[in-house]
Structure formats: structure tokens, C-alpha cells
Nucleic acid binder design. Structure first.
Lengths: 159, 159
DNA sequence: TATTATTGTTCATGCTGTGAAAAAAATTAG
DNA sequence: CTAATTTTTTTCACAGCATGAACAATAATA
């Protein structure tokens, strides 16, 4: 009989489930801590920081595209952008081709600040990777990739 | 000269930093999605769900211990517990040994519901692990462990 | 031209969270 | 034993995160 065998396998899996839950929870807590650290360090709310980071890849963004990238409602974006405009880090101009659209872009100060923040975040991740040796780094990245696609797969099943 | 060599190494590290950032962001998004899925499925706010899960390991909890475990202010716990009491999932009794302390415990309904939720969460994690083969599972767990301790280490440097 | 679709704002609502102040009870110092 | 201190919890004011409905302005289409 492989009843015993199956039992052992199930017990291992149950142990792994518990361990996975605990690890994910702790990692989540670390990420939350880091976000709130950056937020208080720069005195910018977390959502505004996340928004600021989007301008790294593109010069002009619209409220709609920001709402898609941050995965929040458009009305939320209005508030976030208002915060950044008040801080004079972002300015908006009306699209000359389409008066409905506001093109959002970083001010000089916004660019300076956002580059500073990008550098600090990269540095934190650099330090994190340097806690691991070269082999571990590759391994961790490929494991995270596996985890990510596993999570996406489970999400699909969930529906 | 190993200048070229160092340059190559730095480029690899920069690539890994970017990849790590992207992976972490996507995984975080998945976790957020799962939490909000459970919250709407059971019609219980996320913070209350997190609180409910604490009763798995102990029969009685105090506001103070909950605040430590959830890592939130005590005043926040008051609100969370009030929500659970209104839903008749938790009840509080005054500690006979110390009238300052309220002992919080699950009602029958609360126990039933919380066991149901625990089972569903475990099932999601089981599905996630079963997306991987046996070797990958072990690897992923040890990589998460490495990541976690790396994050803790970086957190300490941060201060 | 009239209808429909898109873009963004405003508003009401609810959840998450903090910190200061206060009330009640227990502990400790004198 | 009384007075001062500490502990536990609650209340309140505040701020941030986030949604969805309703609306106005503009553009595209029939």
C-alpha cells in the first residue's frame, strides 16, 4: 500500500503550505515597511510616490494611463495628481490635439526628486541582492518568476 | 584590466535589480488581489480577516496582543474588534484576574467561519505549490527564506 | 445635426491607520 | 494605607487609500 506514502507526502505539503504562508506574510510586511519608510523620508504619500515612478519610462502621461498602470479608479488619480501638482512636482497641459486630455509631466523639481528616489530604491534592491551570492541571486530571481506565474495561474482558477 | 569585467558584472546586477523590482511589484499585486478577493467573498474587511486568523493559534487574545501581532496601533484594534463583535464573530469578557483586560474569543459562528476561511486560504496556497514540482517547491521556499532574511538585513542597514 | 463615446472631476462613502488625551484598574513607592 | 505611577483600553481628530455614481466638456460617429 502506498497509503502511508501518500500520507507522508500530504504532511510534507501541509508543512510547506504553512511555511509559504509565513514567508509571504513576512516578506509582505517588509515591503510595506519599505514603502512607508520611503514615504516618510520624502514626505510624499505612498500612492503619490508610486505615481511619480511611472514617469521614469515616459515623458507624458494621462490620467487614464496612470489609472491603468496603478490599477486604481480614475477618480483616485485625480487626487494623487492634485497632490503632486500642489507639491510642484507635476504640471499638466491640455493636449493640443484633444482638449479632453490633460498631458501630465514632471517639473524640473519633479524630475530631480524622482531621480533621487529611483536611485535610492535601486540602491535598496542592490543591497538586497548583494546579501546573496551570485548563484543565489539567479536562483532567487527564477524562483520569484515561478512564484509569480504560479500566483497568476491560481488567480485564474479562483474565478 | 578587469575594468571590462567589472562593468559586465555591474550591468548584470543592474539588470537583476530591475528584474527583482518588477517581480516583487507583480507578486505584491497578486497578494493584494487575493486579500481583496477574500474580503469581498466573505464580506469582511481585510483587517478584520487578518485579525480573525490570529485566533487559530490561541483561544483568548487581548487587544494589546492583537495590536502587536498585526503591528498596528491599539486604537486600530478597538475598531477592528468592534467590527467583528458587530458581526457576532467575536465576544469579549472581562478578565477575572484583571479588570482592565478584555479577553477576546471567537463565538461559535466565528469559529465556524474562521475555520472555513483558513481552509480556503490553505487551499489557495496548496494550489500555488502544486503549480510547481516537488524540487521547485523546496527551492522556492528556501529562496523566499533567503529573500526574507536579505530584506531584514537591508532594513537594519536602512536605519 | 443628433447621438454616442471618451476623458476627467466632484462627491459621498467606507476602509486603513496613527497619535494624543482620557478613563479605569492595577502596581509600586513612601 | 495612601499617593503616584504604570498598564490597558477607548475615544476622537486627523490623514491617506480607494471606489463608484453622476456630471460636464469634448470628440467621434451615424
Amino acid at each position: 500500500m502506498n497509503n502511508n506514502r501518500n500520507n507522508t507526502i500530504d504532511m510534507l505539503l501541509d508543512y510547506q503550505i504553512k511555511r509559504l504562508q509565513d514567508l509571504i506574510e513576512e516578506i509582505l510586511q517588509c515591503c510595506k515597511g519599505q514603502a512607508s519608510y520611503l514615504s516618510s523620508k520624502f514626505d510624499i504619500p505612498e500612492a503619490e510616490l508610486r505615481c511619480l515612478m511611472l514617469f521614469g519610462s515616459e515623458r507624458y502621461l494621462t490620467a487614464k494611463s496612470i489609472s491603468q498602470r496603478l490599477d486604481v479608479a480614475k477618480s483616485r488619480v485625480t487626487k494623487i495628481i492634485n497632490g503632486l501638482i500642489q507639491k510642484e512636482m507635476v504640471e499638466s497641459i491640455i493636449d493640443p490635439k484633444d482638449a479632453r486630455i490633460k498631458l501630465l509631466t514632471l517639473t524640473q523639481e519633479g524630475q530631480r526628486k524622482s531621480q533621487e528616489i529611483v536611485a535610492i530604491i535601486a540602491d535598496l534592491h542592490r543591497k538586497l541582492l548583494l546579501e546573496l551570492d551570485s548563484e543565489q541571486r539567479k536562483m532567487v530571481l527564477s524562483c520569484l518568476e515561478a512564484l509569480r506565474s504560479g500566483m497568476e495561474a491560481v488567480k485564474k482558477q479562483r474565478v
